[in-house]
Design a protein around this nucleic acid. Structure first.
Lengths: 198, 198, 198, 198
DNA sequence: TATGAATGAGGGTTCATTCAT
DNA sequence: GATGAATGAACCCTCATTCAT
């Protein structure tokens, strides 16, 4: 019985390390966060990290997958029977446990890294594809209910909307002194006008 | 006159190095591209680089500024007296000398770096602000000509549109097998529906 | 009696670990074989190894002693009343449970290590001395029987012959495509001509 | 002209480092000698070593090749027109710049390493083959002059003799209190009796 | 007996940068 | 202007070993 707890402890330590790594990646970047810094943040010795992960690379990949799956999971929770535009936009600004800036920065790290690292690229695509299909299904359902312009291709439209959602975190980075809440409302408006039957 | 050429040679060498650095940053990331690799790509010795730039940091900053100013310049050329949506979207897919993927990757590097590096953040904001103001002016002009919904706040709308433009390069990274041309048309449609008077 | 089995189990586990260590030393070298790899090969946990041996060093020493004692034991079995050359050469190529290359490699590891590690050096000398004395006795007996040149010093001759025997495994390492059987016969010839009364 | 010296300086520094590495390998073993120790012995900083060698592995390989080529070169100098046994044995104990123990230890390191490292194995074989062919030619010449038993196969005999030569350094390692000079004479006797016409 | 979590020093290697030439 | 030798801190990772369970 005490025995049975061991794998759970192992898993929970893994998660602690991933969380620590995540914080470090935000502070220093995927490449800039050293194993030493991550271990320090996680409160473990440098060697011990390798009892939980085979390499720093593996940590990055797991973190990427977990982070993106988190987005996915959150989004999936809201897709049942809600008006289309609301659902689409609920994802971005209501993720729990993440402040907006954190969200945006890790995503941009992953987009940058995904451009030159095949594994990250694959993780990015796999997770995006998951959300995108939910989005496409939501759009198709909206079209059947007459809420969405039937002339829009669900696959392409979902891809574009996904990009729009993920672009929102750029706003505070690029433009200072912006009222994020107003911009959020504006994006909601834009998506609403885009989707509604003409 | 021979004298006068020397500073020009200096400047032209600087540009060569920046171009080499840019290629390396695309291949390895801002942090992953080492000074040695950059010098190799530029065909100069490691020590010599420091006759042109005081540090690697300075190279990154100059490259960021040049790259974003390039976007700015390109965009500025097209803003006079053209229909609004055309203007807005001309930037993205017609940049000369850059293939789309390259474009997107450096931008994401900069967004990621900008989240934790104040100088890069400032460069990002300064350049974005330049483009955004052009955009806002275009929108205001459009509103006066009756082409654009007068209810939209020009400042916020321009910021959102800028984010949408910069989000487009995400598409091929996140979704495989996408027809980029169709998505481009879809974005044009979205922006058109967003802006037009209701 | 159940009690009495425990120390035997302990001893048998020790031998298993030594055998595993031996395989690892062949694969990676004395220094290159890590405790982790040895434990893995032996199927035990890293901590548990230290219930059987106080250190990796101790494993190396015990393995060296066992290995060399194995040579000794094998050789000792054949020294009674047989023709000298036969005795001398029986050792090398008929050792059971060892293929020739394995044999040579561990020996060379030990010779290399013995040059800078006093304990290994002592083990090497002690075991060699054991075999050498048997060899010297065989030679002296041969001299008394008139089979061996009485002008040869038994001590020095035995040392030289021991070196010759241990050198044989070099052959396949240094020369490719060699007929080992023919070389073995050639060494027999050499030793025969060396020892016989002139 | 000062320019032309640079590559020579580079080469001379390489040799210094190789010599330092060689001393360290003798003290600590091929695997046991750390890059830090080698750099310390060579009087350079840890990073600087990599301006001269791409890896520690490359240092080992170059050292192996140089060392074995040194044996080769020395031996080649003595093969013309001298009595066979003298030639064969001149190599071992008269090498300049090497004390006997050093000689033996590096050789055993290489034999051990050669058993599990293909590159070292190849270097070992290539160099041995060089010496062995000289030896075979010497034997054939001796057979034609009637100094050597015509019944001996030159290729196999040369291989066996090479092993015997390289085995000599084992003597002081395995047997304490041995008179090396007497053993040397004994080996000369053995080889002489082996080769002479029967 | 047996585990595997934990350590921290040290492994080989790369880094941005400096400086004599 | 231009080189590349030189630095030493820091990189990711592995090591032999200890200890609570």
């Amino acid at each position: 019985m005490a025995r049975k707890l061991v794998p759970e402890q192992h898993e929970s330590k893994r998660r602690e390390i991933l969380a620590a790594a995540h914080r470090c990646f935000l502070r220093h970047g995927l490449q800039g966060a050293s194993v030493a810094v991550i271990c320090n943040e996680a409160g473990i010795s440098p060697g011990h990290l390798y009892h939980y992960f085979p390499s720093k690379e593996a940590i990055v990949e797991q973190m990427a997958d977990d982070y993106l799956a988190g987005l996915h999971a959150h989004f999936a929770r809201h897709t049942q029977g809600e008006p289309v535009a609301t659902v689409l936009l609920s994802e971005l600004w209501s993720m729990e446990g993440w402040d907006d800036l954190a969200h945006c920065r890790i995503l941009f790290e992953l987009l940058a890294e995904g451009g030159r690292n095949d594994k990250i690229h694959a993780i990015l695509q796999a997770n995006s594809e998951g959300v995108r299909k939910l989005l496409a299904a939501t759009i198709t359902a909206g079209q059947q209910r007459g809420e969405v312009d039937p002339g829009l291709d669900a696959d392409q439209t979902s891809a574009v909307l996904l990009a729009v959602l993920d672009a929102a975190p750029m706003l505070p980075l690029m433009t200072a002194g912006l009222d994020f809440e107003s911009c959020r409302a504006l994006i909601t408006t834009m998506v609403g006008r885009f989707l509604r039957p003409q």
